[in-house]
């Protein structure tokens, strides 16, 4: 299997100095997806940005996993609302310019 876009969990955890249990716990909350191939556990590299956020929330802001789960759902809503606001602002501007 092509592992170009994957990073082994072991490597990730060593790099970010977090225990592997942290990643498995995130998986239980469906906050991260783990890919298993040849008995090796991997993360998709496109998840790294979100994982870094979760590491900061947990280790720097002392937010537990339930909190991270709730925050992520709310952040998704915030992003969706911000995108809607942007679209509506553009629409409004185009009418105001008339």
């Amino acid at each position: 299997m092509n592992t170009t876009n994957l990073i082994s969990i072991q490597q990730f955890c060593t790099h970010y100095k977090v225990p592997i249990t942290f990643i498995t716990a995130l998986q239980e909350y469906e906050l991260v997806e783990i890919t298993v191939t040849d008995d090796e556990h991997y993360l998709q590299t496109n998840q790294i940005y979100d994982l870094e956020k979760m590491i900061r929330l947990h280790y720097e802001l002392h937010i537990n996993l339930e909190g991270i789960d709730a925050i992520y759902n709310l952040l998704k809503q915030v992003e969706s609302l911000q995108s809607q606001v942007k679209t509506l602002k553009n629409k409004l501007n185009s009418y105001e310019d008339l």
Binding site: R56, L61, I63, I71, L75, V78, Q82
Partner: peptide, 12 residues
Amino acid sequence: LARKYHPDLNPN
């Protein structure tokens, strides 16, 4: 305060 103003929690 960090929990209130952290950029990860206040996108954009």
